[in-house]
């Protein structure tokens, strides 16, 4: 009822010969010679810690750095599929007593002194009480160099809240998934085809609501890591 009322009122007021056509050409967006490098620089400007993990050795070192930094004891992997996509050199063995999905990570690189096992869980939904010493690990669908942004899709990740709830968030990003700019991203993305939500993440959670003073880590993570893998 109100639907019809609103629409018919608008149609009454609409001018017949529309004069403003929808612009066809989107203005230029910046291009970069080395998008990966620009991504790193911009992400760091926004407060993200970018680590290289392209070799197994570097990846292990990066994970160690994250865990030490966080003093974390829980690693929350969004989906086991991440292990395949990013060829994680750890083994996820489902050794939990209660038959749940939580398990233990074992490093293939014990000789590098990586202090595993760490308790790792694939979160189940009734466990929304995420501990304050947890790290969630997700996989980025895309990176956008222009602003140092990573894009997480609920279809690939499975979860919408894991990227925000824990105090530390780690995103694995394949260097070949880095796009130049936002025009490229929005021209290629197919919103809503497979996912209920996509999230563009540029730096950790922040606020400047009190006296315009910048504070990092409000409702979301106080620390955001991106590991290139």
């Amino acid at each position: 009822m109100s639907r019809e009322a609103i629409l018919s009122r608008l149609k009454d007021f609409q001018n017949r010969e529309a004069s403003e056509v929808l612009p066809e050409v989107v203005p230029e967006f910046p291009d970069f010679d080395d998008p990966l490098n620009t991504f790193k620089r911009q992400a760091e400007k926004a407060g993200t810690v970018v680590l290289d993990g392209q070799s197994d050795e570097n990846f292990t070192a990066a994970m160690r750095r994250v865990l030490e930094d966080a003093g974390a004891v829980h690693l929350l992997w969004e989906k086991a599929a991440i292990f395949e996509k990013h060829k994680i050199p750890f083994e996820f063995s489902n050794r939990s007593q209660d038959g749940g999905e939580s398990g233990v990570l074992v490093s293939e690189h014990a000789e590098q002194g990586f202090q595993l096992p760490v308790q790792a869980e694939i979160r189940s939904l009734d466990q929304v009480d995420v501990p304050e010493v947890a790290v969630s690990v997700a996989s980025a669908e895309t990176g956008i160099a222009e602003t140092g942004t990573i894009v997480e899709s609920s279809a690939a990740a499975g979860s919408r809240i894991l990227s925000v709830l824990p105090p530390i968030h780690v995103v694995l990003l394949s260097p070949e998934d880095v796009l130049m700019n936002h025009r490229e991203f929005f021209q290629s993305v197919d919103l809503g085809q497979h996912e209920s939500a996509r999230l563009l993440v540029t730096g950790p959670s922040r606020t400047a609501d009190i006296e315009k003073t910048l504070i990092i880590g409000v409702h979301g993570p106080r620390k955001l890591f991106t590991i290139l893998r």
Binding site: A46, A155, S196, A197, V201, G203
Partner: peptide, 16 residues
């Protein structure tokens, strides 16, 4: 920091 692009409710296979 965040831009949410939301297309409807939770889908099949999504955890939350």
């Amino acid at each position: 920091s965040y831009v949410n692009l939301i297309s409807g409710p939770k889908r099949e296979g999504e955890l939350d």
